[in-house]
Design a protein around this nucleic acid. Sequence first.
DNA 1: ATCAGTATTGAGACTAAGTCTCAATACAAG
DNA 2: CTTGTATTGAGACTTAGTCTCAATACTGAT
Lengths: 143, 143
Amino acid sequence: MARELLEALDQAGVRLTGPRRELAALIARRTGHFTAADLLADAEQRSLGIGRATVFRLLELLADQNLVERVDLPDGRHAYVPCEPSHHHHLVCVSCGAISEVDDCGIDAVTAEAARRSGFEIQSHRLELFGRCPRCQNVEPRQ
Amino acid sequence: MARELLEALDQAGVRLTGPRRELAALIARRTGHFTAADLLADAEQRSLGIGRATVFRLLELLADQNLVERVDLPDGRHAYVPCEPSHHHHLVCVSCGAISEVDDCGIDAVTAEAARRSGFEIQSHRLELFGRCPRCQNVEPRQ
DNA sequence: ATCAGTATTGAGACTAAGTCTCAATACAAG
DNA sequence: CTTGTATTGAGACTTAGTCTCAATACTGAT
Ligand SMILES: [Zn+2]
Ligand SMILES: [Zn+2]
Ligand SMILES: [Zn+2]
Ligand SMILES: [Zn+2]
């Protein structure tokens, strides 16, 4: 999966540098969502000597490329999720952070209807669903 | 509108203090979304002597009461929107910040379907639509 | 109106998040 | 290899947001 990130970056015409390869590997071995601070901590724990700015810069690059998506957690934190470029919605487990992609089933109709009623010209939207994944439901059923 | 905020706070059993009345009035005269920093700037501009912590504390109170809703802007900033307690989705104009409420037309069906397919137990969701309001479209048609 | 008890307040220290600058480095193409 | 340029890390800096605590101001009871 790190491979895919790097290939996509290559396509985009950016240099495949050491820090970028290392960060791509760290992202690949993450499960679920992660924050910039998480990634930075990963890098520091391995003494990779990667600067804070580099982490933020790479995340911005990946987000521009739709290789990760920004997710705003219910508590207000900014997180990232590795993402198929064609999908834009996620189900986020609030217990373990697991992610499930959501198909566009019906969303576009909703936005179109909202545009019609309001007169707005809709440029983008953000849909995030929060809950508990099947595994976490089993661990602690009900609440 | 400030009146409504204060009444609702009263109902919730919190004290109706001077700073809270003043902030409610400032919120009432805002149009569209605003950030904590915006509100703080309003207060400072009028030399009300209201501390930063008080602003954040009131916004948290209002959000708990569903009197304002947190909105995460596309650029990552956290903003607030005065809000009918029963509605949870907003159309946000990226030019002027104007807000339009979105009915639940079809959203609930989408989330139910996503829950069924994924096995997640959905607790909450967040839908934000971004675009340009009719007025801003007229000012600068096309982009 | 007064009072007492407690929620709330502002100041300011503090932490975390994110940006910016700049000289040094490392990539990639020739 | 060499060369030109994108990228880098350090660290200063800016916001955003939280926390503590002594002082203050509500509120409900008297
Ligand atoms: Zn989408
Ligand atoms: Zn889970
Ligand atoms: Zn809703
Ligand atoms: Zn507008």
